[in-house]
Amino acid sequence: MIQIDGSFHEGGGQILRTALGLSALTKQPFEITNIRKNRPKPGLRYQHLSCVKAVAELCNGSYEGAEVSSTAVKFYPRNIKSRTLSVDIGTAGSITLLLQSLIVPVIFGDKKFRIKITGGPDSPFSPPSDYFAYVLIPHLKKFCDVIDYKVIKRGFIHKGGGKTELFVKLKFPVSNYSSFEEFTTELQKNTATKINLANQGKLLQIKGSSIASNDLQKAEVAERQAKAAKMALTKLNVPINISTNYSDSLSTGSVITLWAVFSDSDEVSQINPIILGSNSLGERGKRAEDVGKETALQLLNEINSKAPVDKHLADQLLPFLALTTGQAKVSEITPHCLTNIYTIEKFLGKCFEVDKENKIIKSA
């Protein structure tokens, strides 16, 4: 059984999420101890427990020790089968973080999946749903015949209640191969799956979405966030299109997500898109203009890094880089990155070369 130290490096929930996904895909059981040891409230929270249960259902697996505040879990995967999976986190816990535990086995598992989740589409300390849809998913399209993610209902901090749906029809289901090694060999020799993100290229445009709950419409929060962001980005001299919308939700809140689209040729690559993202949530007592401006400044920092992968996308791409071939130059090698490398190599063996000076991560 694979042994994982949940306190390694930044010691957060990402270790558990990555381990669950790779365990389901590779059919290797694992035991994780010291879960979230470095956090103010160590052990599993409700959102982490939802990850364990969801992945277990996906792969017909079982587990021991999965309860709130538990600092150790054993997980035993079995076979992944096509299905519709419905998950209710039960809190405003992040939907996109739950998807981090599911995305790898769903992308490579068995034929097709529909994942329906209730929780927080736009929650603190996690990628908002529009970042997931417009920054991450474009990189995953090359692995799928179809991948579609939609937000059915928005939900913000405190009450959640948001609903999303992910549909995936697979191109490389592991169930089609006689062994996991045959599966990875096929991925690695297929040039269409190679991750090659070495240069930022030319900035073509800025896109974004500014969304607020309906009770903030009179105060024009969505428009003010978008306007402030656009003003901070005008010096880039490229088209800027930030949509504004209001949504029915159980609690008051707002979110703005921006993404910068690049190309190293005349057209945006469909195989290795270059998209940098940034995002912020509104807070009580924080002006909408400040929320928009801070998001724009985050994006400017990513653009000025000259890297084709932003610091938040980097650790989310790592499992796919490990399973295929290629390289990614990132704006920052974060503790999340290093923690994810540690976890991935527990399941796949030594598979990364990290050039910290030049901020390049290669599949070994």
Rank of each mutant, 00 (worst) to 15 (best):
A24G: 07
L20E: 01
K81D: 06
S70A: 15
Y63K: 07
G65V: 04
C59K: 02
V55I: 08
T33H: 10
A72M: 15
E10S: 11
G6D: 13
G61R: 04
P77W: 03
L22N: 12
R17S: 10
G43K: 10
K27T: 05
V55P: 02
F75W: 00
N34I: 14
G13F: 05
P40R: 00
L20V: 03
P40T: 00
E31C: 13
P42H: 09
E31N: 12
V73A: 01
H9I: 14
Y46T: 08
I32Q: 00
K81M: 06
A19M: 11
G11N: 09
G6I: 14
S82R: 10
K37F: 15
T26I: 15
S86G: 12
F30E: 06
A19Y: 03
K27W: 02
K53D: 10
R36W: 05
N79K: 12
A56M: 13
S23Y: 05
A19W: 02
K41W: 11
R45M: 01
A24P: 04
T18S: 15
K37G: 15
Y63T: 06
S23M: 02
A19V: 08
A66M: 08
T71S: 11
K74W: 01
E10V: 14
G21Y: 08
T84F: 10
K74F: 02
S50D: 05
K41L: 14
R36E: 04
R17H: 11
L16H: 09
K74T: 02
K53V: 09
N34L: 14
A54Y: 06
G21V: 13
Y46L: 11
S23Q: 03
G12M: 10
